[in-house]
C-alpha cells in the first residue's frame, strides 16, 4: 500500500509538471525582429520552372499585351510609353518597341513625317503616303515605313549615321499605335524577318481571370 501511494505521488507530481510545461511551451515561441531562415523544402521535378526576371506586369497578371520575343532579341526596361521594349544585335545596338498614344497622335502623315525628320529626311505628302505599303498591327491597318539616314533619337546630342528606321504607323480614330525599329542599316535588314514575327505575335489579351 505504501508503495502504491508513493507511486501515486510520483505520478501526480510528474503530471503536474507536464501540465505546467505544456502551458509554458506554448508561449516561448516568440518572434524576434531578426530571424534566421532555417526551413527548406525539396523542389519537385514535376514543378514547372518559373520565369525569372519577370516584369511586375507579368507577375501580377496585369499583362494586357502578349507577344513572343524573337530568338536572339533581348528585353529592355519598359515604361508607360513603351509597354514592349526590345533590343537586338550583338551589342544591343538595335531597338524595337511598341508605343501607344491614346489621343492627339496627330494622324498618320504627321507621325510618318516625325520619323522621317528623326532620320534627317524630307517630309512626304499625302499622295506619297498613299503609295506606301500596308501592314496590320494587332488587327489595325497601318502603313509600313522604311527610312534610311542619320538617326537622332529624342534628346540625343548627335545623330548616328548609316541607320535604318522601319516601323508601322496605325491609327484608330484619335489613338495611334506604333511599332518602331531602329538600328544600323545592315542589322535592321538582317532582322526584318524577326520584326515581322514579332509584329504578328503582338496580341491584346482579353480581360479575364
Amino acid at each position: 500500500m505504501h508503495l502504491f501511494i508513493s507511486w501515486l505521488q510520483a505520478t501526480q507530481s510528474s503530471l503536474l509538471s507536464l501540465l505546467v510545461l505544456s502551458l509554458v511551451l506554448s508561449s516561448c515561441d516568440r518572434v524576434s525582429e531578426r530571424m534566421e531562415i532555417t526551413q527548406t523544402r525539396d523542389i519537385s521535378t514535376y514543378e514547372a520552372k518559373p520565369k525569372l526576371h519577370a516584369y511586375p506586369q507579368e507577375r501580377f497578371g496585369d499583362e494586357r499585351l502578349r507577344w513572343e520575343t524573337p530568338a536572339g532579341w533581348g528585353q529592355a526596361e519598359r515604361s508607360q510609353m513603351r509597354p514592349v521594349n526590345l533590343t537586338f544585335g550583338p551589342n544591343k545596338e538595335g531597338e524595337c518597341y511598341l508605343a501607344m498614344l491614346p489621343g492627339g497622335a496627330g494622324g498618320v502623315l504627321a507621325n510618318v513625317n516625325r520619323w522621317r525628320k528623326q532620320m534627317a529626311q524630307p517630309e512626304i505628302t499625302e499622295e506619297e503616303l498613299a503609295k506606301l505599303p500596308q501592314k496590320t498591327l494587332m488587327g489595325i491597318p497601318g502603313v509600313f515605313v522604311t527610312v534610311d539616314g542619320a538617326y537622332t533619337n529624342v534628346g540625343a546630342p548627335e545623330a548616328k549615321p548609316d541607320q535604318r528606321l522601319q516601323g508601322i504607323v496605325a491609327s484608330l480614330g484619335e489613338a495611334g499605335l506604333f511599332v518602331k525599329m531602329v538600328g544600323p542599316k545592315a542589322l535592321v535588314e538582317a532582322n526584318t524577318a524577326a520584326f515581322d514575327e514579332f509584329v504578328a505575335s503582338l496580341k491584346l489579351r482579353t480581360q479575364q481571370q
Partner: peptide, 27 residues
C-alpha cells in the same frame, strides 16, 4: 535551380501588419 528552396513559415510573418517589419537572413 537548386534542389531545395528556403522557406519562411507563415507564423513568422503573418503578424506583420503594415507598419511592422521583420528581417530574415540565412547563411
Amino acid at each position: 535551380g537548386d534542389d531545395k528552396a528556403l522557406i519562411i513559415p507563415m507564423k513568422h510573418f503573418a503578424d506583420l501588419d503594415p507598419g511592422k517589419a521583420r528581417t530574415f537572413f540565412a547563411k
